[in-house]
């Protein structure tokens, strides 16, 4: 393990800070996030409201802290799910080959071809927006990408000498996956995880813009930006803070990945 550079240390600190905010929100938020605490809407920073107030006069600090729960929570859960499903399918396809590989590759390829925001829109508007639905939709949308990556890596590793040696020893497929293939693909998959995490955050933001994200009074950061966007013209903190929150989180996650892995990444936003 090499030492982390100052930039990656800072990135790590940002990610950890947001994660803590998400976990501790109920205890550290000064107000309930849905309560209207003042008639002064879109107010500036003040001692009582350190991040100002939103368009209805709710405390922004509390809303941003609670927003971290939704943004981080949903993004982390759905990205993990997507990676889990993608890697499982990808490994199975690479290890078994044949018709399974063929069918899985075709079906997941077909899924990739649907624009992600529109796919999410169709599913969410028919099932109704709830957190489990949002998580499931994001996970399904980003599974094909993870599948493609892990299958490609697994196929490459599969062809390598040490795997051939193991196979010659008479090891079974499960052993091969667990002992030889998996350890060698952790790094690229992790890199991929970070990128997908960012895409999920942006997908959620897009859903919020279309009114299909987290339902009020709860709000993820994207929703917070959207509902206060009218404050943009006079620089209200209510719109700038959540936007900064998104930017810091995604930049930090990206910077962290860059320092952990130097491998190339070639993926798309679908």
């Amino acid at each position: 393990m090499r030492r982390l550079s100052p930039i990656s240390m800072a990135a790590l600190a940002v990610v950890v800070a947001w994660a803590l905010a998400a976990v501790l929100a109920p205890w550290i938020a000064p107000f309930p996030p849905g309560r209207i605490v003042t008639r002064d809407s879109l107010a500036d920073l003040s001692f009582r409201f350190p991040l100002g107030t939103d368009y209805l006069g709710r405390d922004m600090l509390s809303r941003v802290l609670f927003g971290a729960r939704y943004t981080l929570g949903i993004a982390a859960l759905s990205t993990s799910l997507a990676c889990l499903m993608g890697v499982t399918l990808g490994l199975t396809a690479a290890a078994r080959g044949g018709w399974f590989d063929m069918a899985a590759s075709r079906i997941l390829d077909a899924m990739i071809s649907v624009p992600s925001l529109l796919a999410a829109l169709v599913v969410v508007s028919s099932l109704g927006s709830s957190i489990p639905v949002l998580i499931a939709v994001a996970a399904v949308i980003y599974t094909p990408g993870a599948y493609r990556l892990s299958r490609a890596i697994a196929v490459n590793i599969n062809a390598m000498d040490f795997v051939a040696v193991a196979r010659a020893r008479g090891e079974g497929t499960l052993y091969l996956i667990a002992a030889e293939i998996l350890p060698n693909m952790i790094l690229p998959v992790l890199t991929d995880f970070g990128l997908r995490f960012v895409f999920v955050v942006l997908l959620l933001t897009g859903m919020s813009f279309l009114g299909l994200g987290i339902q009020p009074p709860n709000a993820d950061w994207g929703t917070l930006v959207r509902e206060n966007v009218e404050g943009l013209s006079f620089g209200a903190p209510a719109v700038i803070t959540p936007a900064l929150a998104i930017a810091t989180l995604t930049i930090a996650v990206n910077a962290l990945i860059d320092s952990v892995a130097t491998g190339r990444r070639d993926d798309d936003i679908r």
């Binding site: 960012v198 955050v201 897009g206 943009l232 995604t250 930049i251 990206n254």
Partner: peptide, 11 residues
Amino acid sequence: IIGIVSVPEFL
């Protein structure tokens, strides 16, 4: 590029 990509499109 990372900075720009991480800002929501509508913003």
